[in-house]
């Protein structure tokens, strides 16, 4: 049973991140996820300072708020100051992260808090804390939160599909037909930062980043249409979760680390597949005749 909860929880993160990650990959903004996982530090520190608790709702809220703040900064630098998107991301998250580091040192040396608690979650603990939100249905707390997040992300992608697609392919055209491109981008990035924040306690931010970048990149190599890319990405994310879990039990290694490894291997296979297919195409007699 525990096994099922762990895989299920990770699969929820995989689904949300792999969906949103597709749009980040297409907009060349994948490192936004990485940025958020650092940018949330000051929010966590302040929430910890106020509640003396490393987990739970206040920390989640603090992290979510700083995540959205970072998103606002990035949009502001990119749109209003007209700074390139990578520079906007870089300057915003290093600033917020530095702020967090300073806050930690202000709180004194005996504060047991650092970036580690964000970067590495502990998925093996997921099944330990059950709560009953719907009467009679007692599920792990993390599972509830991530289920809600996954439903929200899926609904968001489903509803805004056309505008997300147009805004990713041709933002100038999208703006020209009157779509508020900046607002949709903010919604997308807001979704990514919420997903990162609600996931780090269970799977850790690094695995979220791996999900945001890996399955979408693998799907991108193999897809001819955006819808196909979204479906494939989720499929790769979930398969990597399942295979990764059993790899971890086999090797007695970290679950998150094993999942991330499988994600990398998937990409490698897709890359080799595409290469081989292209080469075999080049070696067909027709092509030689053309030469």
């Amino acid at each position: 049973m525990n096994e099922l909860w762990i895989i299920g929880t990770a699969a929820l993160v995989a689904t949300s991140s792999s969906l949103l990650g597709c749009f980040l990959v297409l907009r060349r903004m994948v490192m936004f996820g990485d940025a958020i996982s650092h940018a949330v530090l000051p929010g966590i520190v302040i929430a910890y300072f106020l509640t003396h608790n490393k987990t739970g709702f206040p920390v989640l809220a603090g992290a979510a708020l700083t995540g959205l703040l970072a998103t606002l900064f990035i949009q502001f630098f990119n749109r209003k100051v007209r700074l390139q998107i990578d520079a906007s991301i870089g300057i915003s998250y290093t600033f917020l992260f530095a702020l967090g580091v300073i806050l930690i040192s202000l709180l004194g040396p005996n504060v047991d808090l650092d970036q580690e608690c964000v970067l590495y979650g502990e998925i093996a603990y997921v099944p330990l804390e059950l709560i009953e939100i719907i009467p009679g249905l007692s599920l792990p707390r993390q599972f509830w939160i991530l289920l809600l997040n996954m439903l929200m992300v899926t609904a968001f992608v489903r509803i805004s599909y056309r505008y997300l697609k147009l805004g990713s392919f041709d933002p100038a055209f999208a703006a020209g037909v009157g779509i508020p491109v900046a607002l949709w981008q903010f919604a997308l990035l807001g979704g990514v930062s919420l997903t990162t924040v609600v996931s780090f306690e269970s799977v850790g931010a690094i695995l979220v980043i791996a999900f945001l970048a890996g399955p979408p990149a693998t799907a991108y190599l193999l897809s001819r249409a955006l819808k196909q890319m979204l479906y494939l990405s989720v499929a790769f994310g979930i398969t990597a979760t399942i295979l990764g879990y059993y790899l971890a039990t086999l090797l007695n290694a970290s679950i998150a680390g094993s999942i991330a490894t499988v994600i990398g291997v998937q990409f490698l296979f897709a890359f080799l597949y595409v290469r081989l297919k292209r080469n075999s195409l080049l070696n067909t007699p027709e092509v030689h005749e053309i030469k």
Binding site: L26, S160, Q228
Partner: peptide, 19 residues
């Protein structure tokens, strides 16, 4: 971008169709 010619030309109808 993963799209076909038809996909891109269809985008011209989006303003008339909305979301």
């Amino acid at each position: 971008f993963p799209a076909s010619v038809l996909d891109v030309v269809t985008m011209g109808r989006y303003p008339h169709l909305g979301l």
